[in-house]
Design a protein around this nucleic acid. Structure first.
Lengths: 107, 107
DNA sequence: CATTATTATCGTAATATTGCAATATTAAAT
DNA sequence: ATTTAATATTGCAATATTACGATAATAATG
């Protein structure tokens, strides 16, 4: 016990839940917002900006990366992260579909 | 340690994360979808439909209720849940804003 | 009021998440 | 090649989540 019974749910439900899980932490919301406001991003800026320790930020970035939302490229000395546009729009549509397909007829 | 440092983040970021956390489980996604497809809802149907034990379903329903997404009313013997339309639309907009306000200029 | 059916709560075990100090890795600059 | 600066990984402690059996509460029905 303790772990989610993912196998009893559809792929669609599991995937949406997985993405929601990444958004389910204020640090990751803040990180995504911050990266998007910069031209690029240097991870060390995030440590100052967010106020969590460097390893913690690195782990959060990794969670975001896992669902394909980050593209990393090297720019001089510093690793430059940016948001993967295609994936971003894909997830935007996924959430929008979820919210739109719900039938709001109340009992 | 172990708990999120919610106090260092903005109210907006915390609130969006809190809602995302509720969506971050396939059972809750499935429950919302199922409720919306019915005229009303009887919890016991959910137990059969989802395939989790009755106390587990009850707990998931409670999480969904906490963020204001469920309205419950009594209808005969059975508790009838339905989705709170106003709150639903509010959250739809919140997610849409989040996805729209991100600047996708890549480095 | 006793019975039955449905939902909620309690207690508990298993697993996951969060966070950071210590350390390792990586790549540019000297 | 050494130093320096930035990011990643490891290990671990604290807390949160998930799930369910047992049990309580609630309300309709006989």
């Amino acid at each position: 016990m303790g772990s989610s019974k993912t196998h009893i749910f559809s792929i669609e439900h599991n995937e949406l839940a997985q993405v929601a899980k990444v958004l389910a932490h204020p640090a990751r919301i803040a990180i995504l917002e911050y990266i998007s406001k910069q031209e690029g991003c240097i991870c060390n800026d995030l440590v100052d900006e967010i106020g969590l320790a460097q390893p913690t930020i690195s782990q959060h970035l990794n969670e975001i990366k896992k669902i394909g939302l980050l593209q990393g490229s090297f720019e001089g000395k510093n690793l430059c992260y940016c948001i993967d546009q295609e994936r971003w729009l894909e997830l935007q549509h996924a959430f929008n579909n979820f919210f739109s397909n719900i039938n709001l007829n109340c009992c």
